[in-house]
Design a protein around this nucleic acid. Structure first.
Lengths: 204, 204, 204, 204
DNA sequence: TATGAATGAGATTTCATTCAT
DNA sequence: AATGAATGAAATCTCATTCAT
């Protein structure tokens, strides 16, 4: 196990390269038509080497989803922090959702990738993910926001989960296929729905 | 035209056998690990014969989804029609959702199968599906319900789609993994969210 | 399972071709350096087809051993039947052993192949093998020989097994490496040893 | 020359560890399904380091066989020396064989390992093996025994080889599978066969 | 000297698809 | 029309060997 810093760094880089290659290929061709050889080739890494990093293509797929979804949330969180004038939790949630929809609209490849791959497990993974660029994980940031909020909500986490799922479920068809409407027309509906859900969970 | 009734019946039976076999295998092992040979074998049909019924495993998969989701909706619709005392559209929607959740709770195999497979396309397919047991398709039934309702809603179809997606997105983790809560505890939250969404879309 | 004669015949021929190819390759290069592709190629059969006949290369290897050892015994048995003037069971056994050694001396490839692969299981397989060219299996022929013999032996089958093992154990080094002596010099020793073993098991 | 005693000891220990690991793995999974990585891992030694001790897995396999077979013979020889009252060479041989069978009965792993791996070459290797715990090698001990014996045998070494082979050929199926009989029932037969072989080679 | 990450040749294995029967 | 044997491309996966550290 004696591993100097350089070697460890190199391993991380290779892992990164594999995930990036996998991400591109999975979105281009789908997991069914992507082979491990494809991924290794694109990453500039030997085929056999793949197996010291991931078990199989489903394993790397899972890891990429967590990673990508984390980044999505992190970026939204980061920008939210900059907008210190948004005070109400309800407004913060809407800002967050809007931010994510905008990211997905800009990065349709990403959208195609995480589509229908958000789940409760991934959601909690993200919340607790220590491997973020921030010092703090997202869960603790959310906790702070909930605490600071004057308005309190019944089971706030459950509520956020519900909202996340709704967002994920709806984004794909709207952004990529304009169904039932193009995302910019759909947003008002969606945000109203989200506000309605939150309102109805307000305590007192 | 030289196809007698018996032969046609036989063809239908084989198609049925293939779909049932596919349904079981896809649920057990996932589409990635199910081969056409597996399906044909389980259906007791020659491998080559598969191709006279479906193009490939993705084709049969799509058909099974439509079929299963249709049945899910049909049963709920049927029971709804029996309960003539439920008059408000909002209550009808809740009844419908509850019915579907109950079905999925009883038939976890079905849940596992349709999980992540509902989409706008499937949704509209179902609405227009002529191959139902009813004389009328579901869309026309919904149209009638909307027309009869005293309360009118902004973009009723979009609203129903939203609700469907929310339902599908949330059912899996709740029923199978009790996350974030067991479905029976989660239902009140969910139904309140749905009512909130509807309320906020009421016209006038 | 409806398989006409022609198709069944064809399957048998393919099986035969695979076994012959396997036999040649295993003796040329050893099992470790023979791949399934090699075998299929040499047999003029698709690589994938191999798997409808045998599980893996160890499976076909076992089948070839049984087959080849059977043939070895069958030929010896056949020639023994022709020599009706050899009456004593002891002489028949020696004739049998001599015949086998001669066959192995002539067919060193075969020797190399069955070397250290005779075991009690293979031995009994051979005795009961119905798939011989004869109408009768070897066991029943031996039974007849034992019954006819005036001299009776204690546990005749165990005795034959012992002799077979001794023969198999010794043949390789002697025929192929002249160790401890060339086979023709070694035979007298060996046959005397066999006669000694038999003598000492005579009853009465 | 700059190799101090400690380093040399360490090398020996590693060699030992590799052989022990190889022994266990070869017995468990067979040589075909054991990789060099497996052996090095189990020995707690780097994969690359394997190559400073052995050429490949066949090389280490050979060394283990010699080693294990040597130990088997050595132990039998040692105990034979203690029993000074066994005077006749024939009795000594039987004692020796009995001792070996008992060892194999107690150590079925060892039996499984050396099964089908005894050969004339291994036999002579053992006889001349200088790397035994004794000061003297086994061959010289046997020579002494032969010289001392009043009864003389035709080609004594060839005779011993024959007996060794018979023993090896028969031990496996009898001890592990009780075929054709459990070893304790089979022993009388076997020993009588051995005595018969020896008797018949007595000179004068 | 020892290590183990990396390699890629080559082995095994799967399976969609064809096609003679 | 139905079959399932045959195919071989392409996938997965293994592992002996090298070599920078």
């Amino acid at each position: 196990m004696k591993q100097d810093g350089k070697a460890a760094m190199n391993k991380l880089k290779k892992r990164e390269a594999l995930m990036q290659a996998g991400y591109e290929l999975f979105t281009e061709k789908g997991i069914a038509h992507t082979s491990i050889a494809d991924i290794a080739d694109k990453a500039g890494i030997g085929k056999g080497t793949f197996y010291s990093y991931f078990e199989d293509k489903y394993d790397i797929h899972d890891h990429i989803i967590s990673r990508k979804a984390s980044m999505l949330f992190e970026r939204a969180q980061k920008d939210l922090e900059k907008n210190t004038q948004i005070i109400l939790l309800e407004d913060q949630v809407i800002f967050f959702c809007d931010h994510i929809l905008n990211q997905l609209k800009e990065d349709k490849v990403l959208l195609r990738f995480i589509h229908r791959n958000l789940s409760w497990n991934v959601f909690t993974d993200i919340l607790d993910n220590k491997a973020t660029a921030f010092g703090k994980n997202i869960r603790s940031l959310i906790e702070i926001a909930i605490k600071r909020s004057d308005v309190k909500y019944r089971d706030a986490y459950g509520m956020l989960y519900l909202i996340t799922e709704l967002l994920g479920a709806v984004a794909y068809a709207s952004i990529l296929e304009n169904k039932p409407k193009p995302i910019d027309e759909f947003k008002p509906d969606l945000f109203e729905a989200i506000r309605a859900i939150m309102k109805q969970r307000e305590l007192q």
